[in-house]
Design a protein around this nucleic acid. Structure first.
Lengths: 350, 350
DNA sequence: GTTAGCACTCGCACCTATCGAGTGCTAATG
DNA sequence: CATTAGCACTCGATAGGTGCGAGTGCTAAC
């Protein structure tokens, strides 16, 4: 993107940049030349480091909070750090934990995902967000209707991702048991394989006509039945550790907290954040993200696969001063773990 | 409770106390004698008011934030205000709104409740909490098992409150279709009317033995089937407007916000708050509530009825400086509205 | 090229002065 | 005798002043 990023840095500059960012991520305090020169791995004097720091600042990798403060990484600095300075870290025991939880007897997709979100936020102290699979790619697999009594019934919808949902509705008085059976047959025949987002449309256009042929007085029933499909299909969001953000020292003033929480209350906005993620891991640092509410936060996203290629997204939201090393490796392993676990689980529904 | 509360106050003291509390609820600023004397309804001089204020403080109804500040209501003051000074306010248009939403075509209990919670918090700018009906009184009404394919099935549980739940589980290979039918019959026969909280126990003690008689190799199946009932039955909590609290001026420091949000993340603690509410409206002011995390908040609870007498709770959580007038009338009407709407809805499930 | 030295900058913590809103008390008033 | 005007006093909030320390940039010496 920025061609300037490819400027050659000397070995020493690389070392210093890395040390500075590591230190700042660790302590949240601006890093000074003297403190840095005292570190084990640094054989240079404070004065030398000051010179290098001035150069790194001129190149845009570092910033000062005021004219005589220590240095703080700039967004460009973090970007360079993430792109070039992070050694692929060995995968930790953390992953084992998640793995164990996933394996440890689960029954619903929702539970796996919610638990993963919680574990993830607990391991990182950031806020985790998991987006369910894209509905665009999810198709209806099966419908069942189970009468509960004379005037109510439950419809069970199963998708090809193995997601099960139920909807209660009132049975129109004009319909009897054999009608329902006919109806279920028609619905299954016609709606199998139809993408969830198009079901309402298909139901109205194709099936209504068909049903009129087979069912007496279908027009009356229509009002009741459409409730099954009209039902909004919100994108499922699983959020963990919302209040972790309060532990971060950068969230020390009420305004920041307020804007963070008002954003987190708006599911649409969050869903938008995660919508356009591609395969693999993506790191967005501060204003690299257009969404205003997180302009001083970093967002790390990873995609996971679900069965036949539907994609979901796992993300972590934290201050730009984020433990990128840990988070990136954690997220990449978790997305693999989740894909694996969900694939196995998905197989069992075929 | 406190006998001291019954001390006779003069007309003037009552008037002043009311004006002071009203004013403070409105502005959140300590109320001074001079400002008060300028009000329309107050024909007394600042000096007189100061004398009365000193008396009211001595009686424990008012406090000072520091030695030369204006007066602020004490908890005892709020308590007196709520018990004696609130004129039953005319019910506003607010209620119509809720009413409309409830009537406006719904399908699930959850939706009514969640929407009510959101409306409630929006109307008040406080945090609303609605607790689902007490599980102790809720009984199982019906079980259905619907096979989805050779190795998975969905169990549908219906309670006498009309609540429907589904649970996916793996069908043991040793069981076939006719076994399932037998099973469902046994389950329905034995579990109907059993309180939700006792289902797991009854299933283990009574039904397991019975099923061994009728089903081959039931021991193997048991492991799979118990999943249906083992499933935790969390108390359902519906929370609206969590971040409304940030709008209150008393939440101007990070620590308070932190302790509030960490409490709100703990559903058990919240459920405990609302557990022991009785019929009717209850107001708990500040430390009147034993729970430490809300010791400078007020909690107003109202119960609602669901069908055969199961009880749920609606609550509002806000600063002790709460608009008690508005909130109390709002809550009492809403609880009636909800009871009515749910009763009708419940009837349709009988 | 590296480093020691030094003047300089700025945030922060602490103190101080001032201002204003509010009080308690006393003495005057109807 | 209740009410009120007057006045000294208190305290929080705000603004300006001082000293300290961590840190910088620059220069000159190594």
């Amino acid at each position: 993107m920025l061609t300037g990023v490819n400027i050659m840095l000397t070995e020493r500059q690389l070392l210093l940049l890395q040390m500075i960012i590591d230190d700042f991520i660790d302590t949240a305090h601006p890093v000074g030349s003297r403190a840095l020169s005292k570190k084990e791995d640094i054989p240079y004097s404070a004065a030398t480091i000051r010179n290098e720091m001035a150069d790194l600042e001129e190149l845009g990798f570092l910033e000062k909070t005021h004219s005589s403060s220590g240095r703080v990484p700039s967004e460009k600095g973090y970007r360079y750090y993430v792109d070039h300075l992070i050694a692929p870290i060995s995968i930790r025991n953390d992953i084992k934990i998640i793995n164990d939880i996933i394996k440890d007897g689960f029954f619903e997709f929702e539970q796996i995902v919610q638990m993963s979100a919680e574990v993830l936020s607990e391991l990182t102290n950031y806020t985790s967000i998991i987006l369910g699979p894209e509905l665009n790619d999810t198709k209806l697999k099966q419908i069942q209707i189970v009468p509960l009594n004379d005037h109510t019934a439950v419809a069970i919808l199963v998708t090809d991702t193995g997601h099960v949902e139920h909807r209660s509705f009132t049975i129109p008085t004009v319909i009897n048991a054999s009608d329902i059976e006919k109806m279920v047959n028609i619905l299954n025949e016609r709606l199998q394989g139809v993408p969830i987002v198009r079901i309402e449309e298909v139901f109205q256009k194709e099936i209504t006509a068909l049903m009129k042929l087979y069912l007496r007085d279908f027009d009356t029933s229509y009002e009741y039945l459409k409730a099954i499909f009209l039902h909004e299909h919100p994108v499922k969001l699983y959020i963990g550790g919302k209040s972790n953000i309060l532990l971060q020292p950068e969230f020390n003033n009420v305004d920041k907290i307020r804007s963070f929480y008002t954003m987190m209350d708006n599911e649409n906005e969050i869903a938008n954040l995660l919508k356009n993620t591609k395969h693999g891991i993506e790191v967005t640092i501060g204003t690299e993200n257009e969404v205003d509410a997180i302009k001083d936060l970093s967002l790390i996203t990873a995609s996971y696969q679900l069965g036949k290629g539907q994609m979901g997204t796992i993300a972590l939201l934290g201050p730009t001063r984020m433990e990128y090393k840990k988070v990136i490796s954690l997220l990449s392993s978790l997305s693999n773990e989740m894909s694996d676990a969900l694939y196995k689980w998905y197989k069992s529904y075929e």
